[in-house]
């Protein structure tokens, strides 16, 4: 983990409220693993004060990519950055996905909802390199919420989409698409990132079908490296669950570790 105070933006793509930046930083890119994240400063001033946690979307030699949707003032400011601007970034942070050597030759599903697709491109390609047969399930509200569909396809990955309004692919939630797919064939593993209700439902399917599943959790974070204890979630580690740090103990946890909150 290191700090690059001036990582140069070498690529910017946008689709409505969705943005993708490529940032050149050999120091950050060298260590990056799928499921890890970056803490990015969105302002040079004291407001907004905190860095924003963003998943590592892809790694290309000396470049890391981030993909995000405008969700508030911080990401709105970040979205205004242009190519050649510099970003102050801490990373790579967190433990990331565990890529089990036993997945070679096995079918695995990578399931992303909305902006939760962000870490799954890097992961899907690494899984394929590790010899797994990867199927990507990518869900959004509507076709414009699936801006990365073609990118996955171009990378030669098998992608199935879902939209809540039926404008593309399976008509319904990505968890419905997952249920359909598991009815055909259970994968050897699930890798999931998306909104909490989607991940909770996915965890239920995984538990029922006895599929090992890993979930990348999202949280507002104070620091991103374990110092503030602000981003906790109830996680079991051989106990009944304690407030554990998403930034440091995660952000990726296995389904049986996560204590999902009751719907209020």
């Amino acid at each position: 983990m290191t700090k690059d105070p001036a990582a140069r933006i070498v690529l910017k793509q946008e689709w409505g409220n969705y943005f993708l930046f490529g940032v050149e930083s050999p120091a950050l890119a060298g260590e990056a693993k799928p499921g890890q994240f970056l803490m990015v400063r969105v302002s040079d001033h004291i407001d907004p004060l905190l860095r924003r946690p963003l998943s590592i979307h892809a790694r290309e030699r000396n470049t890391l990519e981030i993909f995000f949707k405008i969700a508030g003032r911080g990401t709105a400011l970040l979205a205004r950055k242009k190519e050649e601007d510099r970003l102050d970034i801490l990373g790579p942070l967190g433990a990331g996905f565990r890529l089990d050597a036993g997945l070679k030759g096995k079918a695995v599903f990578v399931v992303g909802g909305g902006r939760g697709i962000a870490p799954l491109y890097f992961l899907a390609r690494e899984l394929r390199t590790a010899g797994a047969r990867v199927k990507v399930l990518y869900g959004g509200k509507s076709l414009p919420d699936l801006p990365l569909k073609q990118k996955f396809e171009k990378a030669g990955l098998d992608v199935a989409c879902s939209t809540d309004d039926g404008s593309s692919g399976f008509h319904g939630l990505v968890t419905g698409l997952l249920q359909n797919e598991t009815n055909k064939q259970n994968p050897a593993a699930l890798f999931v990132c998306g909104p909490d209700p989607m991940m909770k439902k996915t965890a239920e399917i995984a538990a029922r079908e006895k599929i090992p599943a890993q979930f990348s959790l999202e949280s507002m974070m104070g620091c991103g490296f374990g110092a503030c204890w602000g981003c906790v979630k109830r996680i079991r580690k051989g106990d009944d669950g304690a407030w554990r740090k998403i930034c440091e103990d995660g952000p990726v946890f296995s389904g049986d570790e996560i204590v999902w909150e009751e719907e209020g």
Binding site: I46, D47, P48, L49, L50, S219, M220, M221, G222, C228, W229, G230, C231, V232, K233, A242, W243
Partner: peptide, 24 residues
């Protein structure tokens, strides 16, 4: 100490409100 249930942090203008509750 177990600390307080999340959310524990809110960012405000030039500041941060925390209610970690001394977990440790």
């Amino acid at each position: 100490r177990e600390g307080n249930p999340p959310p524990r942090l809110v960012e405000t203008a030039g500041g941060l409100i925390n209610a970690i509750g001394l977990q440790g």
